[in-house]
Amino acid sequence: MSLKPVPTELSEPQGILPMQSLAALVDQGAVLSTSALDDNQIQPASIDLRLGDRAWRVRASYLPRSRTVADRLRDVQMHEMDLTRGAVFESGCVYIAELKESLNLPAGISARANPKSSTGRVDVFVRLLTDYGVAFDDVAEGYSGPLYIEIAPQTFSVLARSGTRLNQLRVKRGVSPKLYTTDCGVDLTGDLVGFRARRHAGIIDLDHIDGHDPKKFWEPLYQAGGELLLDPGEFYILASKTDVEIPAMEAAEMLPIDPGVGEFRVHYAGFFDPGFGTAEAAGTGSKGVLEVRCHETPFLLEDGQTVARLVYEPLTARPDKLYGQLGSNYQRQGLKLSKHFKVW
C-alpha cells in the first residue's frame, strides 16, 4: 500500500491519543477500513480492530521482518478459511487473519496493539502483525499498510467471523513518557478466589454475549488458607488484591511480572482505558482481572503476591468519554469471567 502521509504538527503534545483524535485520524484517512466503522468501535483511548474475510491455518508463528505478511504467509499456510460464514479456530492451532482496518499513519505517529479483555479471558492468545514488522503488536512510526492478527486459542476452541473484534490499537504521538508504575498483587481471600478453565469444553462463540453456561467451561476455586497451587499448563482467572483506578488524563498497560519472581504469565490483555475504576465514571471498586498461565513447574501463589505491574502513560487530551460511559462490560468488576458467560 502506498498512500500520501497525513501531516502532523511535531509541536503537539506527546502521548496516547484520545478518542476524538482517533476519530480525526479516521476522517483524515490515517485509519482505513474495508467497511464503515461500527458506532462503538472507537474507545476512550483505543480503537477496536475487526477480523476481515479471510484467515489461514498456519504451521508456525512468524515475524515478516524483511518481507510482507502476505509474502511470508505463503511459506507456512496450510489452508484458507472463509470468515464471512464464520469459522472455528481450534485450540492448540495457530492462525493468521486479515483485519478490516489498515493504516496510513502520519510522521510522528506510532501504535501498539493488545488483545481485548474478553479475548484474554477466554485464553485466546492474539498478536498484531504488520508488513516488515520486527516485533509483534508494535506499529512503527508512519506505518502505511495492511494489518493482520495471529490467533492461537490455548484452552477453548472459538467461533469467530468477519467483524469479530479480538484486539485493539492504542495510537501515540511522539515518545509517550512513562509516568509511573504500580505493582498488582493477587487476592486469594474470601470464599471464591478464582476459576480454572476446563479442558475439552465446548466451542465459545465470540460474538454471543451472555450466551454460555460458565459451569461447562470453568471450575470454581475456593479459599484455601490464602494460597493457590498453580498447575503447569492450566489457565486461571483471578482478581487483583487492590482496586485499579486510571485517571481521566492517563492510560495504563498491565505488563507480566519479571520471571524471576514466578514462572507464570499474567494478563494477556493489558490495556486499561482512562476512567476505569474512577468515581466520576461510576467505577469505584473496580478490580483488575488477572489471566494467569503457569509454565513448566507447579507454583504456589500466596495472597497479596505481586504478579504484574501497571505502567501509566499520559494522554494528549482528555477523552470525550471515559471508560464506563460507553456501556463498558467490566466497570466496577470484581472477580469476573468474560462477557460471553452468564453470571455464575
Rank of each mutant, 00 (worst) to 15 (best):
L3R: 14
L3G: 01
E9L: 12
P13Y: 14
M19W: 07
A23C: 06
A36G: 01
L37A: 04
N40F: 12
Q41I: 09
P44I: 04
L49G: 05
D53H: 12
S61E: 14
S66H: 08
L83Q: 02
S91R: 15
V94N: 03
E101G: 04
N114Y: 11
N114Q: 08
K116Y: 03
T119E: 02
V124K: 02
F125V: 03
F125G: 00
F125L: 08
R127H: 13
T130S: 08
D131V: 01
V134P: 00
A135F: 11
F136A: 06
G145L: 10
L147W: 02
A152P: 00
S162K: 13
N167H: 15
G174D: 06
P177S: 04
T189G: 05
L192H: 07
D213T: 13
E219I: 11
P220Y: 04
P220A: 07
P220G: 06
Y222I: 07
G225L: 12
L230P: 01
G233W: 14
E234V: 01
F235R: 10
T242R: 14
T242P: 00
A251Y: 02
I257R: 10
I257N: 11
P259H: 08
G262T: 14
V266M: 10
A269H: 07
G270T: 09
F276C: 02
A281H: 06
S286Y: 09
K287I: 02
E296Q: 12
T297W: 10
P298F: 08
P298T: 12
T306G: 00
L310S: 06
V311A: 13
R318E: 13
Y323C: 08
L326T: 12
